[in-house]
Design a protein around this nucleic acid. Structure first.
Lengths: 210, 210
DNA sequence: AATTAAGTGTTGCATTTGCAACAAAAATAA
DNA sequence: TTATTTTTGTTGCAAATGCAACACTTAATT
């Protein structure tokens, strides 16, 4: 279970027993299939074991937005995204998913599985990680200019990758959405940063020159 | 323990026993005193029982920002706000605070207090509530104009208070910070909404006319 | 291989916003 | 009460941004 945060520090055989005890289901889906629809009306926790999928929001106008990309180790469920909009998880690749009822996490089962405390620790860790991410995004969004947003964003990545050269994992269209700004205005500002010598940028590969 | 979310559904006598078991400390502070400094370097969980305080961020430039206002029932600790900046909690009123080590929450104690599952449920609920709040704020921040931000903000309040008339619980200076915009530009837009007949506004009392 | 779709890059122009600076009102402290 | 600080409200102007429209490149589909 390497790379599956929610099972960190729990031995594979114990994970297996626990999942058994939780009556968990492991199912594989083909690209394009719906893994869960109307997430808010279910009580399940889902864990992506393999492949990838998108968490989609359908707002009142019928617009679809990708809220999150889910990959190995990602966890989804209404505890993680308690929005009122309609949410679905849709496979973007062949993928394998474990699901079980959320109740199993906080309530101790009759058999009183060991490692349950560790699971709860991990669960809280995941929520906390999410809060960190959201905090980072809020920090960026509250910056007043696109230039400041970009520099703040680059700072976070630099700190994370410990390098002044990196590839963005969002494309520019997605990045504009993430910043809540117009895409063309974003491109313009990247060009400005280039011509003023603050960065080098070849498509999505960035080098900070400061 | 009415209004203290983290103890919801746990009887007062059980809360008392549990706190005893957790070796919790209950301390009162005077207005202006520091309740905790350098939050990130502690492992405590704090619960505001009475009075009010501010959670303060001290950034690298030495700027102080109020991140959150804490009141009865608010919980603080690094799990709730895992930022790298220096954080302190400072009383803005005479207040009473319970603190104990975070470890007690996820690890079961030797005495195996009942109601411990409920506490964890509540803890996760608090984290989830925080995620909801942050989601709301991100929704607002990603709106492109101040007008759209205001209307989104009003929509959330209207839904919450079930009324088209309400008092804002942030003043305009704070609201501008919350939106990440210039205060004078915010005031201008409120004036525009007024003259165009979308809202009535007498200071911080707003009535939606749509 | 050809077609379609998705993403990149650019620009002119109108609109929105930030900034700076100030006066007035309200709240707080002396 | 008076003095002092904080918040509100306003404005002109410069700067930043959004919008619309377009050509071009790359990726995906048939």
């Amino acid at each position: 279970m390497n790379g599956i945060t929610i099972f960190n520090g729990i031995e594979d055989k114990d994970v297996k027993n626990m999942l058994n005890c939780f009556e968990a289901r492991t199912i594989s889906y083909k690209n394009g299939t719906t893994i869960v629809s109307n997430l808010a009306n279910t009580n399940i926790i889902g864990i992506m074991l393999d492949g990838s999928s998108n968490l989609i929001k359908l707002d009142y106008n019928g617009n679809r937005t990708i809220i999150e990309k889910l990959e190995r180790g990602s966890v989804f469920g209404k505890v993680f995204l308690p929005l009122s909009d309609e949410l679905s998880v849709i496979a973007t690749d062949e993928c394998t998913v474990i699901t079980f009822d959320y109740e199993h996490i906080t309530k101790r089962c009759k058999k009183s599985c060991p490692y349950h405390s560790k699971l709860i620790d991990n669960m809280i860790q995941l929520l906390t990680d999410k809060i960190v991410d959201m905090n980072n995004r809020i920090d960026i969004l509250t910056k007043k200019t696109i230039r400041e947003k970009l520099l703040e964003y680059f700072k976070v990545i630099e700190k994370e990758k410990l390098s002044k050269t990196f590839k963005l994992n969002l494309n520019f269209t997605e990045l504009a959405d993430y910043f809540g700004v117009d895409r063309s205005a974003l491109m313009r500002e990247i060009k400005n940063l280039k011509t003023e010598g603050f960065i080098e940028a070849k498509s999505n590969k960035i080098t900070l020159l400061y």
